[in-house]
């Protein structure tokens, strides 16, 4: 009984914290999946160090060179495909929401499973995006598949 109470308490506090943080930006948080503030903070740290130089602070990318990470099918869509992009990089003649981008994305396989999970979760829940979190175990599974 005591345990259940503590869990409820933690969840409520977590929810309030998240709500307070995103107030004014998006109101449709909570319920489906609660992304903890610490995951977002870690994700942002990884983003600033390894992704920002190409995809920019606002996630808007660079015209003709680096694609935006705002509501693209890659960011919001299939998790496996997204995790593979982070692990292996991307340099293909593809259209990303109607535009082509000429730069290459290097592999970020040197990041730890948790770092990849956090940064992708951060991307999926920033710049106006809203999508489920990615867990370290999912990254781990896909990394293992590769070998």
């Amino acid at each position: 009984m005591k345990q259940v109470l503590t869990i409820i308490l933690i969840l409520t506090i977590g929810g309030i914290k998240l709500n307070a943080q995103t107030k004014g930006k998006t109101k449709k948080t909570v319920q489906t999946d609660v992304v903890s503030a610490s995951v977002l903070a870690n994700g942002q740290k990884v983003y600033n160090q390894y992704c920002l130089s190409c995809h920019m602070a606002d996630g808007g990318g660079v015209q003709n060179m680096n694609p935006p990470l705002i509501k693209t099918t890659y960011v919001l869509g299939d998790k496996t495909r997204l995790i593979k992009i982070a692990l292996n990089g991307l340099a293909e003649e593809i259209e990303i929401d109607g535009e082509v981008y000429t730069n290459v994305m290097p592999s970020h396989g040197f990041l730890k499973d948790q770092e990849i999970a956090d940064v992708l979760t951060f991307v999926r829940n920033s710049f106006g995006n809203k999508a489920s979190a990615i867990k370290a175990s999912e990254v781990k599974a896909i990394r293992a598949e590769k070998k």
Binding site: G89, A91, V104, M105, P106
Partner: peptide, 8 residues
Amino acid sequence: EQDRGLRS
């Protein structure tokens, strides 16, 4: 060796 890669 890996274009734009870390310490490549």
